[in-house]
């Protein structure tokens, strides 16, 4: 279909969202991401049975940490889609980009840029 998604998104591939660790998510923010979304398979369709459900809980956990740090839990989200739903992926990417644009740059990133 060759759909285009916002160019500001950097994709990190994992074999299954079950591989997404809490630390990965936190490190992304430490490395300057303004927002992060995890794109997992549809619930109930995980090849490894519960990988996407685990990811969902970890995203929730990181959301709490982001709230506690003052970065804001709304900068992280989880979306579910099948491998065939390219349009759904593009939708999620656009929605997330919109949301983060409204929120503005991550306060962490701003500092990093100033430091150089």
């Amino acid at each position: 279909m060759r759909l285009s998604y916002p160019v500001n998104i950097k994709i990190i591939k994992v074999p299954c969202t079950g591989k997404v660790d809490v630390l990965y998510l936190l490190k992304m923010f430490q490395n300057g991401a303004d927002g992060v979304f995890v794109a997992g398979c549809m619930e109930g369709d995980c090849h490894f049975l519960t990988g996407n459900l685990r990811a969902k809980k970890r995203v929730e956990y990181v959301r709490r940490i982001l709230d506690e740090t003052g970065i804001g839990g709304e900068r992280i989200a989880m979306y579910n889609m099948s491998a065939a739903q390219a349009t759904r992926f593009v939708e999620a990417a656009r929605e997330m980009t919109e949301r983060i644009r409204e929120l503005g740059p991550s306060p962490v990133k701003k500092i990093m840029e100033e430091v150089g």
Partner: peptide, 8 residues
Amino acid sequence: ALNLARQK
């Protein structure tokens, strides 16, 4: 988390 909060 400490790093993020302090960087912010």
